[in-house]
Amino acid sequence: MANLENYKGYSEAFIHPELPLPLPRLQAEQQADLAPVTGTTNNLANYINYSLVLSQSRGFPYFVASNIDGGLFKKVSRTDNWRKDSRIDYAHQWGEELYKARKSDFDKGHMTKREDVQWGQTTLEARAAADTTFYFTNAVPQRAELNQQIWADLENYILHTESVPNNLRIAVFTGPVLRPSDPVFVTKVLGREVQLPTLFWKVVIFTKDNQQLNRVGFLMGQEKLLRKAKIVKSEAVEATAFATERFMEFEDAETYQVNIATIEELTKLTLPPAQDVYLDSRPIKLVLEEVDINARVATPKAFTELGYRISNLVV
């Protein structure tokens, strides 16, 4: 396995050399909160076929950026070799101490999916790439109902229904929404309170003609699942200007698939420009009550009806 310092990470020119795709842009306060990464000037942690930036205060990524080459996808065995990244101060990373704490009834939710970067010219390369997704920097606590069902269905659709069969090169940006109002885990970890993200976003960027980049965005949540399992404290963190109460007031919401502007408003990130395939001409009609999965089980019927089949990704 290559040394961490030799990993190349996300490539902006991956989809097409004449259609560069930069990383999401953080606001100044987020930039100031990045966990330092040894050997870098931008605190970008590169792995194989993906990169991420980590929030120093929260211990979770602001975003991860991955390149997916459907034509070079390889099937390899899963390792589950979770470890911390030695380039980043361990005080800024959550490891087994979080996922084995009392009441930690949640999965290590991959932000970059293992299989997404599981590609290369050889099986050995694909296996090495998949193995690098098992750094704790790439994990965020997710309830199994989200991580193993609806979120997994979306990820599998992107990879196995679109990218691999069509030999597509695509870029995927993913992350938790890190809000000051996120609920607090009931168990202190290493003497610290841990705020658990309740919303997760994903943006897929692709081209159908090698002339125009297109993008689609998705949002899913787990707050009700966390509260139902009594994993988080009942009292909420005091809301700030970044709170999202106003999203609760809207009606006629689209579920899961959302405008990119909605993701940008929630995350404070500026996502790379591209043609928006999905557009809702109404004011933001996102109801977090609908995005948040309340122990719903994903079924083929639900997969079709709930709004995240990416028909526009077909070239």
Rank of each mutant, 00 (worst) to 15 (best):
R102K: 13
G120K: 04
T122G: 03
V117Y: 11
Y50G: 10
H92T: 05
R127A: 07
A91F: 02
K74F: 00
G59Y: 07
R87W: 03
I88F: 01
R114Q: 10
S66C: 10
L52K: 12
Q121D: 04
S57L: 00
G109F: 04
K100Q: 11
S77M: 03
S86D: 12
S51F: 09
S55I: 09
R114S: 09
A45N: 14
R127G: 04
Q118H: 06
L52Q: 13
S51K: 14
S55T: 09
R127M: 02
V76D: 12
A128G: 09
S55F: 07
K75R: 10
L44F: 05
A65R: 11
P61L: 13
R78H: 10
K84N: 03
D85A: 15
S77V: 03
R102P: 14
V64K: 03
G120D: 08
N49W: 04
I88V: 15
A128E: 15
G95Y: 01
K74H: 13
T79G: 04
T123W: 00
K113I: 01
A126G: 08
S104L: 07
I88P: 04
A91Q: 06
S66N: 09
S57V: 09
V76E: 15
K103C: 12
S77L: 05
D89Y: 00
L98F: 11
D116H: 13
R78I: 03
L98Q: 05
G95A: 05
R87C: 06
T123I: 01
F60E: 13
S57N: 09
Y50W: 14
D105I: 14
P61Y: 15
V64C: 15
W82P: 08
R83I: 08
I88E: 00
D89E: 00
N43C: 10
Y62R: 12
R127F: 06
R58D: 08
W82A: 08
K108F: 04
W94D: 08
E115M: 11
L54Q: 12
E125I: 01
R127L: 06
G70N: 07
T112S: 15
